[in-house]
């Protein structure tokens, strides 16, 4: 099994080595990095490259570890028992697998993406330690054990801003996605906008990195903003990118009002 990226997902040796380690050691791959650096896309690319199905678990602030394992639908069972159109004796009918459960039960090896793990409660990663280590859990209501026939390839993403517990970190292969440099960014843009005018690309990249480099910008634009921005430039038929006050479609790059303000005041001071 070898991961070298896909047509749409460009990698580098560091990322490839991290994925390789994660595969051979059968440990979860923890991917951190700024928003918009393609953490979630990585899991999709790994699944595509290895030809495995992808199961995604989007973590939210209210998500609890148990939801990833299974859910026992008590209400449905109560309801059915009342109207009697279902056999309620079999509790298994009312156990629904969560993302982790589905990944374990899958007849083939799958890629399991636990997306934005830092969104949940601070103890959440610790609650999953055992299940991710052993790749098995027990359904309390039935005593059934759900064990992975094939250990899933686990990819976990987290934003760089929040800390995860040490015990959890120690069990993961870690990769930090650096923000792409100009050269890689040009290749990424090329993937999204094939045949983009060289001149426009250069100007857009210069403007983009200049905006990112301003220290008063609180939410610097990321790859997705750049890709959108170039799409806007193309649609509008812009050929010149003015870095000054009249920078076109500034709102596509900067999403915060203060940032736009900061950009403007800096422009007037400079020009």
């Amino acid at each position: 099994m070898e991961f070298t990226g896909t047509q749409a997902y460009l990698t580098n040796p560091a990322l490839e080595a991290a994925v390789r380690c994660s595969l051979v050691l059968e440990k979860p791959l923890l991917v951190r990095g700024e928003p918009g650096t393609g953490k979630t896309l990585l899991a999709e690319a790994v699944a595509e490259a290895l030809g495995m199905p992808l199961i995604t678990w989007h973590v939210k602030s209210t998500t609890r570890a148990q939801e990833g394992l299974y859910h026992y639908d008590t209400v449905q069972r109560l309801y059915d028992s009342r109207f009697g159109d279902h056999d309620v004796r079999d509790i298994r009918e009312y156990i629904h697998m969560g993302a982790l459960g589905q990944a374990f039960q899958s007849p083939e090896r799958v890629v399991l993406l636990i997306d934005e793990i830092d969104k949940a409660d601070i103890e959440f990663p610790n609650d999953l330690l055992h299940e991710l280590d052993r790749m098995r859990f027990t359904v309390m209501e039935t005593g059934d054990e759900v064990a992975a026939a094939h250990r899933p390839v686990v990819v976990i993403t987290s934003n760089a801003e929040k800390e995860l517990p040490d015990a959890f970190l120690r069990r993961c292969i870690f990769h930090y996605i650096d923000f792409p440099d100009r050269e890689l960014m040009a290749r990424i843009v090329e993937v999204h906008h094939p045949g983009l005018d060289r001149d426009l690309m250069n100007q857009a990249l210069t403007a983009f990195f200049a905006v990112r480099g301003m220290d008063r910008i609180r939410k610097p634009p990321s790859t997705s903003e750049l890709v959108d921005w170039i799409a806007m430039l193309q649609t509008a038929g812009e050929t010149e990118v003015d870095l000054g006050e009249n920078m076109p479609f500034l709102g596509t790059l900067l999403k915060k009002e203060q940032d736009i303000e900061a950009f403007r005041t800096r422009s007037t001071r400079r020009y």
Partner: peptide, 12 residues
């Protein structure tokens, strides 16, 4: 270098 980094380091 990359393998050692991925296995030993857990934080950027």
């Amino acid at each position: 270098y990359y393998a050692a980094r991925a296995t030993m380091i857990h934080h950027e």
